[in-house]
Design a protein around this nucleic acid. Structure first.
Lengths: 353, 353
DNA sequence: CTGAAAGCGCTTACAG
DNA sequence: CTGAAAGCGCTTACAG
């Protein structure tokens, strides 16, 4: 007499696979986990039964018995953030390939019980790793809470870079990161404008407390210096990465004594603000004013004229981050820089004669 | 002699809590699960030890032993879709409140192995429910695969409504849904234009295979009919919910014999296309042409002029969907309609005299 | 190359 | 109101 058959509708277990294949459950486990030391023929038999039964090991059982949960956590703050979509796309794809799953949590960067929220999530889920996006990856509270539970983390595009000094170094120091070369990209963007013939180029800086803003500004300065172009102080505006700050910046920059012929905003949201003000002032973009942004947000391609900008490799960064968590390399925390892409659209042209 | 203490860094278990509180693990379990029949004093003691130890039950153990996994799955297709952000926001918040967690999976609507991907996810995770967003919630393959595993589902803003007939009825029939009143909202939007004095109003329809498109068109027709306004056939364009189709529609509508004074596009992406064409043609929006969209996408507020549109209660819909999965009501599948919001911005005004 | 036993940390079904 | 036992479905650590 066979063992008690499972209830109709219930999924098969490893025991059922083992019985049908005529092996022990340990052997089934070996095959499924690709452990060495299984006879080829045995392996095939098991695999065939697995396919027949459509057997998939139950995550909760694997997780409880073993050392891995096959869960990766993704923490983010601003749901409208440009890159959450891309990051999630890359992360879920890599997870799926590796048999992992992505658990997302939307956190408020200023929540008073932020640490507790993270603690709960980690203790309940025991994820094998966490992917952090800005601004959470620059939040000392978040990093400290994660460190306390000794959960492996990877920071995506952190605003601060390790070794830069400051309080964050304490919690961020030895964490792996994935990012892009903001400085280089900003240089390229500026060179594009210079190449088109622009000399009087304005810059709207990003939030002062994020190093990406500083890097982009520095890239702008570098390119200008390389071409022996002066950067008039009245042509630099301190923005905040928001649409509103782009509007405010444009209102000041476009009404100053000698109007710039081009504006490089440190991100697309601010560039859209510039575009709005230019249109309100009756300026034709790009004929009277060239505008470039940074991020390649969805809106950047949906406005008229579509924005010249820089595409951050968001899906790629997320993929790399998940990879680091799934297959840690050992040794010092890696810091990967992924290539970016200049997206030249219609918001840039030669300056008016 | 006390029991073997746990390794340093290891999280406490229910056994440790039980010992410290001087009760059995079953009692701790009762307290944690808010089961009735625990002496108030006992409950307090347990709760205090739980707090002291920062104990959180491990999900994999609960899931393996019990009937629930405390996992809700969110399936979506287009990562750039307007509402994924809002939906995820609402879903993660409601999950957190209830001690659940959200696992997301980005699926390709046309993937050949779509069913297998879903099967794997479900068998591995055993989520207590799935939240489906368009267009996946209108994909018969997706619904059939989920039905085969008897996973509870809630459809968010399905393009097709149950009982409408067609092949989808077979798989969608008894599934709960959360949505908004597209017809009503479209009526309101059209009435807004009529109220401003517009008579010659064009409409760009959404993708023909999504009922939301049909509903919005019908709402447009209703409002026009109520005010005894004719709808010229050359003022209706069959779009596809894409920016490109908005551009194509505008190119036709804005160059026809007698130009409309207003365009109602069935979503924001298309409305942005209309705006782009209008600006290219040298039309001033809204002075020469009023434009309204639908969705309140992020870009809608970031262009100039910012778009008048309809805000779908996306976070609210997701919250309600999760709620339905966590606390099913029994009885027939509920169909909830959530209130929308008219967002009047600067892309609409009275028609030119 | 293969397997029997123990155990992960909870909940379920009983019993008192 | 409370608890002892069994068991969920896997992996780990051994043994052969």
């Amino acid at each position: 007499m066979a063992r008690t058959p499972r209830a109709p509708g219930a999924a098969p277990t490893i025991v059922e696979v083992a019985e049908k294949a005529g092996v022990s459950i340990k052997t089934v486990s070996r095959v499924l986990n690709q452990e060495p030391g299984v006879h080829e023929k045995t392996r095939e038999t098991v695999l065939q039964v697995v396919a027949e039964l459509k057997y998939r090991p139950k995550l909760s059982a694997r997780s409880l018995a073993g050392a891995r949960s096959f869960l990766i956590g993704l923490l983010y703050y601003d749901p409208s953030a440009v890159f959450v979509g891309g990051v999630q796309q890359g992360a879920t794809l890599r997870c799926r390939e590796a048999g992992y799953h992505l658990v997302v949590e939307s956190l408020h960067n200023d929540a008073p019980d932020l640490e507790q929220q993270i603690e709960r999530m980690v203790l309940a889920l025991r994820p094998d790793g966490m992917v952090l996006t800005p601004p959470l990856c620059d939040n000392p509270k978040v990093l400290a809470a994660l460190r306390a539970t000794s959960t492996p983390c990877v920071l995506i595009a952190p605003g601060f870079h390790p070794g830069q000094g400051g309080a964050l170094d304490l919690v961020q120091a030895d964490l792996p990161t994935v990012g892009m070369d903001d400085l280089r990209a900003a240089e390229e963007v500026t060179q594009l404008l210079i190449g088109l013939g622009h000399r009087r180029i304005a810059h709207i800086k990003g939030a002062a407390d994020q190093s990406a803003a500083g890097q982009r500004y520095q890239g702008f300065l570098n390119a200008m210096a390389q071409h022996h172009l002066s950067v008039d102080a009245e042509l630099v505006y301190q923005g905040a990465f928001t649409y509103a700050s782009g509007v405010a910046g444009a209102e000041q920059l476009l009404t100053c004594s000698v109007r710039p012929t081009a504006v490089f905003a440190a991100n697309d949201d601010m560039a859209l603000g510039v575009l709005a003000v230019a249109q309100r002032l009756g300026l034709s973009v790009p004929r009277d004013l060239s505008i470039v942004g940074f991020d390649d947000s969805q809106a950047a391609g949906l406005v008229w004229p579509p924005l010249t900008t820089v595409r951050q490799p968001m899906a790629g960064m997320a993929r790399a981050a998940v990879e680091m968590l799934i297959s840690p390399t050992g040794g010092p925390a890696p810091h990967r820089i992924l290539p970016h892409e200049l997206i030249v659209r219609h918001s840039t042209t030669a300056p008016p004669a």
